[in-house]
Amino acid sequence: MTFQRRLLIFVTAVVLLAVVGVLAVLRASSRADEKDRAREGGPGIVAGPVVLAPGEGERRIVFRNMAWGPHRDELATVPADAPEGTRTASGVSCLRFHAAAGTGICLRADKGAVPGAVQGGYRAVVLDARLKEVSAHTLAGLPTRARVSPGGHLAAWTVFVGGDSYAGADFSTRTSVLDLRTGRLDASLEDFTVLKDGHPYRSADVNIWGVTFAADERTFYATMATGGRTHLVRGDLAARSVTTLHENVECPSLSPDGTRLVFKKRVPGLPAEAPWRLYAMDLASGAQTPLGEERSVDDQVVWTDDRTVVYSLPGDFGADLYAVAADGSGSPRRLMASALAPAFLG
């Protein structure tokens, strides 16, 4: 046997041993990850198609997956009747998300953007039923709220352009509304005419955020802050106006039947960094009812139906979703771990 042949056999053996070693390490790592996930109660996740169109006879939840791993921040889906089941992850990443009637709005960081960047670092992307990009719009700040109207024709988003929390007074927002039927973009609702206490009102400190749409695809409700107070406003997109209705209302969410709002309300005596409680308001009478959730919720709730709302609270991996009755009865229950920004479809 020649020296070259012996050298070739030796090199081949070394390479094979290295490959076997690497495969053994990867297999052990995979088993360790599976054990860690099982021990931590993490969800099973597989890659696959995610659609926003209503299914045939099956309701689904589409949401931002917060579980650690290769699919973190991707839009994922589970059956609504099995929220802790195996998740199907789409490969589409969003920081904030909402969807209705086959239309989605995804607030995301631009690829290559510097973490924490503001101008030009984020985009609002309109998605079709198969998560394909329909249009994109540069955001002027940090994404915080997103909503699609019940008929899927309108999309709204809110960003922080100064500050990064609703808890204090030192923040500024900008809320935009896009009409997908005409392509018209109202870049800032602060440009709308404001009627406060029945009179025209103008002030440099007006901030409007947290839009929720009515079924007529024209009316909306939102929060307006001015003079150190927050107000519930009813907006009219055709008239380009907002009218104040009640004080101390933030991030309203309109019920599917259009008769009630659930919102977060500042309660005296609570800590400055956690000042809110969830309340429901009957729009006809103005009567307010505290919900069964006693923790401070900094979120815009989502209605699963006319009886229940879902919202996020801090969790081990960023956020968990909880559900509570909208009439003030019962106690909250954890709906999903490691999830954020849900939309209930179907």
Rank of each mutant, 00 (worst) to 15 (best):
V309H: 08
V62T: 07
G346K: 04
R184E: 14
D216Y: 06
E40S: 05
G152R: 05
L270F: 03
F344A: 09
A82K: 15
R174T: 11
D179W: 14
N248H: 00
S149T: 05
L321P: 11
D110P: 04
V118W: 02
L7D: 06
G162C: 09
G55I: 07
E84V: 11
A80D: 14
C106E: 07
L195D: 08
P314F: 06
R31F: 00
I208T: 14
K196W: 08
V159S: 11
D170Y: 02
V262Q: 13
V11I: 14
M1T: 04
V15Q: 01
E84Q: 15
R123D: 14
R307Q: 15
A323G: 12
G116P: 06
T77N: 06
V211H: 01
L16N: 05
E74Q: 03
K132V: 09
F220H: 06
A76H: 10
A117R: 13
G121P: 06
H231P: 00
R234Y: 01
G121E: 08
G152F: 01
S296F: 04
R240V: 09
D236H: 02
R108V: 05
T304S: 11
L26W: 12
R240M: 11
V78C: 02
P143Q: 10
G198H: 07
H199L: 14
D186N: 01
A89M: 00
V206C: 12
S296T: 08
A343K: 10
R87W: 07
Y122L: 12
G168L: 13
I9T: 10
G228M: 06
Y221T: 08
G85E: 08
D257L: 10
R39I: 13
F263Y: 15
D316A: 12
L142D: 08
A214Q: 14
C251W: 11
S172V: 12
V242D: 05
L142G: 05
G44M: 10
F171H: 07
A339S: 03
G69L: 05
I61L: 03
R333A: 15
V20D: 08
L16A: 11
P83Y: 11
R123C: 02
R123Y: 03
G168Q: 13
L261Q: 15
R334C: 12
M66Y: 11
N207M: 00
G21W: 02
V15R: 00
M66G: 02
L52F: 12
P290H: 04
L291R: 00
G210Q: 01
G141M: 00
S329P: 03
Q119H: 10
R202P: 03
A38L: 03
A167W: 04
G292S: 03
A101K: 13
S338Y: 12
S285R: 11
A18P: 09
E34N: 09
Q4K: 13
D236M: 02
G183I: 00
T173N: 02
F3H: 13
A325N: 06
D33T: 15
A325F: 04
A113T: 02
